[in-house]
Nucleic acid binder design. Structure first.
Lengths: 139, 139
DNA sequence: CTGCTTGCAAATGATTTGCAGGAAA
DNA sequence: TTTCCTGCAAATCATTTGCAAGCAG
């Protein structure tokens, strides 16, 4: 994980003020597993910093997303989730069990990268490819 | 497109009662372009059937989704969207311009199908693969 | 200092729910 | 007839907003 001062740097590097609240949100993002929702983050943050407001956490996360510190992701039925681990990966989703699991597959990542390097989609320039593999998580 | 009686059959085939409301929703799904939201569907439906309630449309769409008559999809910032065209395809998304464009690519579909036929993901059985290609729509 | 941030509480907007009455099969 | 479906209106829940006060740079 990252130290407090590393987090400060990460935030400052984006031209954002490294406030207590932002550091707390970043910490929570790293420590709450499984692509937390705002609710999950608030639970974690509330233990250490009970005075940080929910609205602030929403604003902070929007802010982080705009500055590429987190990725937002959402499934069909749930609230928005946030992912602070930016290494390329995909997601396995079981809606029934409400599971959302990271799926790292560099072979597939590389294939797709090459595929779209060659195959040009008219009138569209690609920033990112999100893959959600929908199915059943077997106990 | 499909006739009224074809729609009736499609709905009945899932064991659902072919009510006026459901037919109207299915019609709207076929005729409102670009993966409509409930709001867009209501606009279309309201012209012909002003008495159909919004709640009914929500329930109908949930119902259709459970019975594989539509797919639900949602992007980061928007309301739920519904897709009644079930042929395999992916989506190009430009969040800034709020564009969501169908992307048909059978080469990619086939590759992925074979890829996951061989590559077994432990503890997970795949039903569907959703790909969202995020980027900028030019022009 | 000064402008970016925060806390708070109210507002919004999409979606869900409960229930009494209605209509397909 | 009987079960499934609908309309309505209220409720819920995630998220956004406005604004006065606070704090990082």
């Amino acid at each position: 994980m990252k130290s407090q001062s590393e987090i400060k740097q990460i935030i400052s590097a984006q031209g954002l003020k490294a406030t207590l609240q932002r550091i707390a949100v970043y910490e929570a993002l790293m420590n709450v597993p499984n692509h937390p929702t705002v609710e999950m983050l608030m639970e974690y943050i509330g233990e250490k910093y009970p005075s940080i407001a929910t609205g602030t956490v929403y604003k902070t996360l929007e802010n982080f997303a705009e500055n590429n510190l987190v990725k937002k992701l959402r499934t069909e039925n749930e609230a928005m989730r946030y992912d602070v681990f930016l290494e390329k990966h995909f997601h396995l989703i079981d809606s029934e069990k409400e599971k959302l699991i990271d799926y790292y597959d560099s072979e597939l990542s590389n294939y797709l990268e090459n595929y779209f390097k060659q195959k040009n989609i008219p009138n569209f320039s690609i920033n990112d490819i999100k893959i959600q593999i929908i199915g059943k998580y077997l106990e």
